[in-house]
Simulated scan of single mutants.
Amino acid sequence: MKDFYVGVVLTDPFHTSIFGICVHNNFFGFRIVGFNSPQALAKYGLGIVGYHNYGKVFTHVAPHSCIVAGICLRIKNDMKLDEQAQAVLSYQNYTVPPAIEGVVLQPLKKHRSLEGAFMEHLRLNNGLVEGLSTPFEARQISVSWAVPGRINAFHIHPKRIQDELWCVLEGTLLVWLVDLRADSPTKGTRRPVLLSGEAPSLLYIPSGVAHGYRAGHRGALLLYAMNDQFNPSDPNEGRLPWDFFGAELWADDKG
């Protein structure tokens, strides 16, 4: 099945109208397959106008500085499906995850070679992390190993400020962040973040943002820094149930 588009070109230097039918092509764009003018056909031939979504105006600079412009309209040619399949049909969602105020995701440079790989984790100047878009003083650095499939959620640190800086060195973590700060402009926002040892990043999690993770099928090695130190006599390790924001957050993607 193909969707067909009708393209109408407005003008050229000789005011010769060009009309054509365009076939949608994911790789090359809209291809003009017919003209109403022999002069135009001889001059321009079959040419690529450029790919745009239907309903959008397209422009193309043709030979001899001729400006070609037009609009493409879609003629629907929907496929009919089995009624039971149609009833449960859904489509993949590619929307960008919503931002949470203060959360920073900063890629790191992992230098690879045949012999292995090297990466700088943090550069410190009097305890302050350099190159981060928000001030952060590292006071404790810890390592956590997660077995495959482990869910560790949700953590929050309400007694005093404890911002964290996460980096996955091996494996993969699906991290969920939920803004619980009462005065935050993004209060209540949920955001998923995928951290991977293949393409390491720094994830800055400000205080008041609940956080938890699920490890991938190979488990994960998490290196994280905090701007506070763990105090066993007055722990600041708040916990919420793993499914407090919905068990579906941790469901397998089987689609």
Rank of each mutant, 00 (worst) to 15 (best):
M1H: 09
K2W: 03
K2R: 10
D3S: 04
V6M: 13
V9F: 06
L10S: 05
T11N: 13
T11L: 14
P13C: 07
F14V: 09
T16W: 00
S17W: 14
S17L: 15
V23Y: 14
H24D: 15
N26Y: 14
I32Y: 04
N36V: 13
L41S: 11
L41F: 13
A42R: 15
Y44W: 11
Y44Q: 09
G45L: 08
G45Q: 08
L46W: 15
L46S: 14
G47R: 12
G47T: 13
G50T: 00
H52Y: 10
Y54P: 05
G55L: 02
V57E: 09
T59D: 11
V61M: 14
V61C: 07
A62S: 12
A62D: 15
S65V: 15
C66R: 03
C66L: 07
I67L: 08
I67H: 09
V68I: 13
A69D: 01
I75Q: 13
E83I: 15
A85D: 12
A87I: 12
V88H: 11
Y91I: 09
Y94F: 13
Y94A: 08
T95D: 14
G102H: 05
V103E: 05
V104A: 08
L108W: 00
K110N: 00
R112T: 15
E115F: 02
E115R: 14
G116D: 07
A117W: 06
F118G: 04
M119R: 01
E120N: 10
E120K: 06
H121K: 06
H121E: 13
N125K: 13
G127Y: 05
L128D: 08
V129W: 03
V129I: 06
L132F: 11
S133N: 15
P135V: 07
E137Y: 04
S142M: 03
S142A: 06
S142N: 06
S142H: 07
S144M: 11
W145D: 03
W145K: 08
A146L: 15
G149K: 02
I151E: 07
I156T: 01
I156F: 03
P158D: 09
K159L: 10
R160N: 14
I161Y: 14
Q162P: 05
D163P: 01
V168G: 10
V168I: 06
G171Q: 08
V175F: 12
V178P: 00
V178S: 07
D179C: 03
L180E: 10
R181Y: 03
D183I: 10
S184P: 08
P185M: 07
P185S: 03
K187A: 04
R190Q: 12
R191P: 08
P192L: 05
S196G: 11
A199K: 04
P200S: 10
S201D: 00
S201P: 10
L203Y: 05
I205F: 00
P206H: 06
P206F: 07
P206Y: 12
A210C: 08
R214G: 03
G216M: 03
H217S: 15
A220R: 04
A220V: 10
A220N: 01
L222K: 05
Y224D: 02
Y224Q: 02
Y224L: 05
A225P: 02
M226L: 11
D228E: 09
P235F: 00
P235H: 03
G238E: 13
G238W: 01
G238N: 11
G238H: 03
R239S: 03
L240W: 02
P241H: 09
W242R: 01
W242M: 03
D243S: 15
F244M: 09
A247C: 07
K254D: 04
K254H: 01
G255P: 04
